[in-house]
Design a binder for these strands. Structure first.
Length: 185
DNA sequence: TTACCGATCGCA
DNA sequence: GCGATCGGTAAA
């Protein structure tokens, strides 16, 4: 099993979002290991994407999206829910991939993180983990185990105003752990 | 300093 | 269909 490194994330958000499907998300929380297979992602771009946090230029919050790839961008939304993103694209260029759904593999004890909010909660991700680098020493990283026998479906993103949506959502066809709200067309 | 609102979820 | 609840952002 190979850990995904800097070069994997140092590419356009669309590419990373697509290739992250089927990979394994690993979270080491105080000695406990949580793992899950990535089954659903969304890509967020920079200035060309009005739905992205980075769509209106650089601010304090989104500055991490302009920084080094392979860094966690975790944001509190609607006052309740954290969203787990991975920064992509080379430094200076905004881009991120949102994790919307994973299939639980180990350490998740019956939890079904089918949705970005629940996912972050199940993996114990919060404000503290924002801006952490996805280098194994920080306890958050992605790994590759050769799983690639699946079909990728591309649709519009979820929760985005009409008119500024783009087909940047990727998921594994037929997977039970793709979020339900996300399954609608 | 204040007012507004969002990449959501669970319950009715 | 709606309310919960908080931090970033822009305007004053």
């Amino acid at each position: 099993m190979k850990v995904l490194g800097f070069n994997f994330f140092n590419r356009p958000a669309r590419t990373v979002a697509k290739e992250l499907l089927g990979k394994i998300f690993v979270r080491n929380f105080r000695g406990k290991i949580f793992t899950g297979r990535v089954v659903e992602t969304e890509a967020y771009l920079g200035s060309e994407d009005p739905a992205s946090h980075a769509g209106n230029g650089l601010t304090k919050r989104n500055s991490v999206m302009f920084g080094k790839p392979g860094v966690a961008y975790i944001y509190l939304c609607y006052g309740f829910h954290f969203m787990m993103n991975v920064v992509t694209d080379k430094e200076g260029l905004a881009g991120a991939v949102l994790l919307r759904g994973v299939e639980p593999l180990s350490g998740l004890k019956g939890k079904v993180p089918n949705g970005p909010g629940k996912l972050a909660k199940a993996f114990k991700l919060g404000k503290k983990e924002n801006r952490l680098s996805l280098v194994p020493k920080n306890g958050i990283y992605f790994a590759e185990d050769g799983y690639k026998d699946f079909k990728i479906v591309i649709t519009g993103r979820i929760g985005i105003k009409e008119g500024q949506n783009m087909p940047l959502r990727y998921y594994i066809e037929g997977n039970k752990y793709v979020s339900k709200t996300g399954r609608r067309k």
